[in-house]
């Protein structure tokens, strides 16, 4: 079947098997391998992408379900060689070790910060609670997201002044 969608701002049209999962469509067909696969059961969240700005587990989403929607993967965070502040935050605060859960974590964080620019620690923990990191123990991920919130607040204040 034919699917049309926007991936990281680019309109694409591809032929797929109807049963193809979004994670495999992104990884194998579009070769966007920054989206990872970790569990099959929607528990680990290494496959999280944004569909119309909302975090979605692409391992339990058919590619066909994304048709007509806007998909953002980790590859879409950096624009014109400028990192998204969330990427900077994860580097600054050691929010990643092996880097396998990181794309999904950053995308969920991006979605959270878009909706709530000043989240508390418990709001951050709640937001990322559908995803597993086996390396960091989460504190540095929380710090990375707080760093980003504070950094972005600084930017918007600076912009207003």
């Amino acid at each position: 079947m034919q699917v049309n969608m926007t991936v990281n701002g680019t309109e694409i049209s591809e032929e797929i098997e109807p049963r193809m999962l979004l994670v495999h469509f992104l990884r194998d067909q579009l070769r966007l391998t920054g989206t990872h696969w970790g569990c099959d059961t929607s528990n680990c969240g290494t496959c999280v992408v944004l569909i119309d700005g909302e975090p979605v587990k692409s391992c339990t989403t058919l590619a066909a379900m994304a048709a007509g929607h806007e998909v953002t993967t980790v590859e879409g965070l950096e624009v014109d060689n400028v990192l998204d502040p969330i990427q900077e935050g994860f580097m600054q605060c050691h929010g990643l070790q092996c880097g396998f859960c990181t794309p999904g974590m950053m995308l969920t964080a991006r979605s959270l910060l878009n909706a709530n620019p000043d989240p508390s620690e418990s709001e951050i923990r709640e937001a990322i609670s559908g995803q597993i990191c086996r390396c960091t123990g989460y504190s540095t991920i929380v710090r990375s997201i707080r760093w980003t919130a504070e950094h972005e607040a600084g930017i918007s204040q600076g912009g207003a002044a």
């Binding site: 990884r27 966007l32 391998t33 920054g34 989206t35 990872h36 696969w37 993967t73 980790v74 590859e75 965070l77 950096e78 990192l83 990427q87 994860f90 580097m91 600054q92 050691h94 990643l96 880097g99 396998f100 990181t102 794309p103 950053m106």
Partner: peptide
């Protein structure tokens, strides 16, 4: 800061899969 991070935060790591 880690030297491995710039590729990993861009989704440009190279895992076996």
């Amino acid at each position: 800061l880690r030297k491995e991070d710039p590729r990993l935060i861009r989704g440009m790591g190279n895992f076996v899969d």
